[in-house]
Write a protein that binds this DNA or RNA. Structure first.
Lengths: 232, 232
DNA sequence: CAGTATACGTGTACAATGTAAACTTGTCAA
DNA sequence: TTGACAAGTTTACATTGTACACGTATACTG
């Protein structure tokens, strides 16, 4: 039976000396996600990762191609958290739920957006499954390949773009909002009156009845798609 | 009069020995943009930047705070290229034109998106002017602060998200599309039929009459905003 | 049980990066 | 002439990813 103890050292009773949990790609990636969640992408170094796994940095290379591979791997893990099969009668509600699930996953792991979008052609499995799933639902709803493509783009752009925006105004390690407050205090409201208004808009405790900003934009897009005639 | 020669060495006719163009923040940022456009963000190192300016890396620090400052600076330059005052009778056409201008600027300098959205609270002047300008036009159109805020978000998310998506499928230094082609050839169409269809959709020579994918999503959003009642 | 092979981890080293601190030099005012 | 100052250079260092050679515990083979 597998030992899923989080601590990396366990005890072998027969030999009576400490035995390390064996390293594995999965364990490396899990710890990498933890580090990045807690201390930011900057802190995810091979040495730090090795340290947290009670191992020298170079040991990681037996299980992982290199740092790039690790980055791909943790993105894959996060995107795997997205719920792609929410039960729903309509394509619209189903896509809406998936989009919200994606948004939540990205917020849980704020470093993901930036990584997903670094320009190259890696094929990250869960990312491909995700895209495939959105396209499939639009096609199943009767939309043409062209409309499905464009609809997918609009939805995904909104998810990534909006989440990035949200996160851009979060300071890592400033949960108390202290830095944010000083920022707001010294903001030049005279030069940027509407931006100032916008800032205050964001600070306002939002009515829990009211829809969030993310859903607002999402519905704009879904409305638009719904308005396009299906071709069957 | 200012010497705007791109070469960093000019000739002083009285002393008859080469005289370096003086370094300046502006010149540094210009060259930084050039390097990043041509060789990617990875290649923008202080040493490379110094080399291209015929100067040691450390000389830059007399004119610039550090690398982070340079990154902010080049983002500022690019966002400054966005046309914020396209003549137009309606808010909708005006915003549409600005959004397209922003999209174009981001495509000209593909590294910008990632930089704009790295999470922190720097205040990049042209970015603030840009946001202010969009908000102002929505407010002038009669929308409430809340709708203006959310409308702005939806538009900006689309611009950044969509452009990032586009660029994610571009390989830096693969203008011939060679890498892309091998990617397409070895793509697993059986496992991801709709993604495959989507890929082909992208490869198709687009009808010049037809609207681009960017405008398609943009109009979805603008339609949505237009459908919201103004409050005056 | 002895010998060996293999997988796993370590140690050391190196190149690339950002940048601090001290040094040099060209220019110009007093 | 001097001397102060700004602009660039030199040197050095810490941090990063990772190549390579080396040990060693575990499992397999006879």
């Amino acid at each position: 039976m597998y030992n899923v103890n989080l601590s990396s050292v366990t005890h072998n009773s027969s030999t009576n000396h400490p035995v390390r949990l064996p390293l594995s790609r999965d364990r490396i990636l899990q710890v990498a996600v933890d580090i990045t969640d807690k201390e930011g992408l900057r802190s995810l170094t091979m040495r730090k990762l090795g340290h947290d796994l009670d191992v020298e940095a170079m040991a990681l290379y037996r299980h992982v191609q290199g740092k790039a591979d690790i980055l791909d791997g943790i993105v894959d893990l996060v995107l795997g958290e997205i719920d792609l099969s929410p039960y729903s009668s309509s394509w619209r509600m189903s896509l809406r739920a998936s989009a919200i699930s994606a948004h939540e996953a990205l917020l849980r792991h704020p470093w993901t957006c930036g990584l997903v979008l670094s320009p190259n052609l890696r094929t990250i499995p869960s990312r491909m499954r995700y895209i495939e799933s959105i396209l499939a639902r639009l096609r199943a709803a009767g939309y043409s390949p062209s409309v499905a493509s464009r609809g997918y783009h609009a939805i995904d752009s909104h998810i990534l773009g909006f989440t990035l925006w949200e996160l851009g105004h979060t300071i890592p390690g400033d949960s108390s909002g202290e830095l944010l407050e000083t920022f707001i205090r010294q903001f030049d409201y005279a030069s940027f009156p509407f931006l100032g208004e916008h800032l205050l808009e964001h600070l306002k405790e939002s009515d829990p009845e009211e829809m969030g900003d993310f859903e607002f934009g999402l519905d704009l897009i879904l409305d638009g798609i719904e308005g396009i005639a299906v071709t069957r």
